[in-house]
Design a protein around this nucleic acid. Structure first.
Length: 188
DNA sequence: GCGACGATTGGCT
DNA sequence: GCCAATCGTCGCC
């Protein structure tokens, strides 16, 4: 499948947005790179944080599309999502992996490694490398410190089952840049 | 108030 | 491959 989008349309269903995001460049305070892996979630999905309805934690995912949803994972990591579809729908995309491009040295320092493959190859690592903090929760993507630039050329996108979930494990809502060495795990 | 459990990671066997 | 770390959120008593 080819990603042919010229702009990210966050009013689309989350699986469409996740597909469009592959190949886009995303930075926080000028640090980041190319999104190579993302997963879609929505309210009809038992694996989604929003499946149980609106709560204090997931409230921003029921907010306007094009904003971020930040949550704490396993009491340790900060994970980053983009809100999709329509206010009140509870849909979003988890950003799982980025190919590090800009601000490599800063990311190396934050992550404590010089192995570029280990900088952003997972939602928790990415959160640490880009210094995602809870105060970003609900903030719009189209303004500082965020910058999101769609892929300029079509890229090869592959899909498969999502990772680390126990419900709806068969839904192929994980999307990735074909052949990228910067994925959290390979597609098969 | 209390307990179970994660959209994970990194270190050890 | 297995497992501990670590804590906010949610569900139930």
């Amino acid at each position: 499948m080819k990603n042919t989008s010229l702009a990210i349309d966050f009013s689309l269903p989350s699986y469409e947005v996740a597909h469009q995001l592959i190949g886009a460049t995303f930075t926080v305070d000028g640090v980041g790179g190319i999104i190579v892996e993302a997963e879609a979630y929505d309210q009809t999905d038992p694996a989604s944080h929003t499946f149980v309805g609106k709560t204090k934690r997931n409230a921003s995912m029921f907010g306007p599309p094009g904003c971020v949803y930040v949550y704490r994972s396993y009491g340790i990591h900060w994970c980053l999502n983009f809100v999709c579809e329509k206010e009140g729908h509870g849909a979003g995309v988890l950003i799982r992996a980025i190919e590090p491009i800009v601000g490599l040295q800063i990311m190396e320092e934050r992550r404590g490694t010089k192995n570029v493959r280990l900088l952003c190859s997972g939602p928790g690592k990415l959160g640490q490398a880009l210094a995602i903090v809870h105060s970003y929760n609900g903030m719009p993507l189209n303004q500082s410190p965020f910058e999101l630039v769609p892929a300029k050329k079509p890229v090869d996108v592959i899909s498969g089952p999502r990772i680390g979930i126990s419900k709806a494990v068969d839904l192929p809502w994980r999307f990735g840049l074909s052949g990228s060495p910067f994925l959290s795990r390979p597609f098969r």
